[in-house]
């Protein structure tokens, strides 16, 4: 995936985490995803986007303990399970803000005109996300509250 399309997401994760919950990204690493299926850590928000010949998705995939820490920081309450509606709503809102901000930058710089569908959020055991074959990248973020991964897929771009 083109750096011009990926970098706005990396920047957005850094900015939004700092702004919304005061979490600092310590490092990130990018790896291509060869398989069309992703095994989730346990909590994920998925947001798809499309525009013209392009379509794609951004997946925020978090271990349950990191999702809980983010919800606790965002809402100032102590949650004990990821099956709480407000925990999932927090992760959904985080993804919405990250994706919205990144896509605005991409649209302004490239004129692609990507539009976001509302995010959905899920939790469960042995979770798998499958999609039609398209090139994805996985970006592992290490933060001061733990790690999580973002998966970016953009169909229509080599």
């Amino acid at each position: 995936m083109d750096q011009e399309l990926m970098q706005p997401y990396i920047d957005s994760v850094n900015e939004v985490l700092q702004m919304m919950v005061g979490v600092k990204v310590l490092s990130h690493s990018v790896t291509p995803v060869e398989k069309s299926e992703i095994m989730s850590y346990g909590v994920a928000s998925i947001m798809t986007f499309s525009g013209g010949i392009f379509s794609g998705r951004v997946v925020l995939d978090l271990p349950p303990e990191v999702a809980l820490k983010i919800a606790n920081l965002l809402l100032g309450e102590q949650f004990s399970t990821t099956r709480e509606r407000m925990v999932l709503a927090s992760i959904s809102e985080l993804n919405n803000t990250i994706g919205g901000s990144a896509n605005t930058v991409i649209n302004n710089s490239t004129g692609i005109g990507l539009r976001l569908a509302p995010p959905y959020v899920l939790t469960g055991d042995k979770l798998v996300f499958a999609s039609t074959k398209a090139k994805s990248v996985g970006i592992m973020f290490k933060t001061n509250i733990g790690f999580f991964r973002m998966y970016l897929t953009l169909k229509g771009v080599d």
Binding site: T48, G52, R85, G124
Partner: peptide
């Protein structure tokens, strides 16, 4: 209307909040 590629979600004890609307 444009559509995105479909995502299949499978697992155990799955809970999906599709929308708050």
């Amino acid at each position: 209307i444009d559509s995105s590629q479909p995502s299949v979600i499978a697992g155990e004890n799955v809970m999906i909040i599709l929308t708050f609307m």
